[in-house]
């Protein structure tokens, strides 16, 4: 990849040589290739060039330094992250999760409570309606009972009166028969006497009875 890049850079440099009009283009990838004339500007580059030519990445003399400081950095970073940052972030995330589930549960509870309240309201309404119906039914039954009572009493009175009247009628009828028999006997006796006969009481009675039997039937 690096050599490819160098190639690209070289081609790019060559193609721009024309507008550069004779400018000298030097591509420096190996510090060793430039020496004294750039030493003042690139003292450090030249310094590293003295130790090892080529890519700075391949300068093995700096590896120990890089590895040492990298390990120091990584250990510090690991300790800080694992001791401070991660527990804190984990706590924040779990707090948030907890708060969210808590809120959701509270909302669910409120919903449940509202549902219960509605159910209680419905139940109370149904009970009130039932109570009202029971009261109406009780009143109706009471009135019905009173009414039945009154009717029964009236019926009984009517029956009593009817019976009384019938007795009276029977009595009247009985007295009327007796009276009629007496009148008939007396009239018969008087008629027999008037015609000059001697009225035999027993005969008159028998005659009236036989006549009355026919009349009464």
């Amino acid at each position: 990849m690096i050599s490819l890049l160098q190639g690209a850079a070289t081609t790019a440099a060559e193609t721009t040589e024309a507008p550069g009009a004779g400018d000298e283009i030097v591509i420096i990838t190996e510090s060793a290739t430039h020496g004294a004339e750039t030493h003042s500007v690139y003292g450090d580059a030249a310094h590293s060039a003295a130790e090892g030519a080529g890519l700075p990445q391949l300068d093995i003399t700096t590896f120990g330094n890089q590895i040492f400081w990298l390990v120091v950095t990584l250990v510090v970073l690991y300790l800080v992250l694992s001791r401070v940052a991660l527990p804190r972030i984990a706590a924040v995330l779990s707090d948030r999760q907890g708060a969210m589930t808590g809120d959701l549960m509270a909302a669910e509870e409120f919903k449940q409570r509202a549902r219960e309240a509605e159910a209680a309201y419905d139940k109370a309404l149904a009970e009130a309606r039932g109570e009202a119906q029971r009261i109406v039914a009780a009143n109706r039954a009471e009135i019905q009972a009173e009414l039945n009572n009154a009717i029964a009493r009236a019926d009984a009175e009517i029956a009593a009166r009817t019976a009384e009247s019938e007795t009276r009628i029977r009595e009247i009828r009985a007295t009327a028969e007796t009276d009629a028999r007496e009148v008939a006997q007396e009239v018969t006796a008087a008629l027999v006497a008037a015609f000059g006969g001697n009225a035999d009481n027993a005969a008159v009675t028998a005659a009236v009875d036989s006549r009355m039997k026919g009349a009464m039937q």
């Binding site: 550069g20 283009i25 030097v26 420096i28 510090s31 690139y42 580059a45 700075p56």
Partner: peptide
């Protein structure tokens, strides 16, 4: 013109 594309890595 002088290019030092690798100097940044020294």
């Amino acid at each position: 013109l002088e290019f030092h594309p690798m100097d940044q890595f020294v």
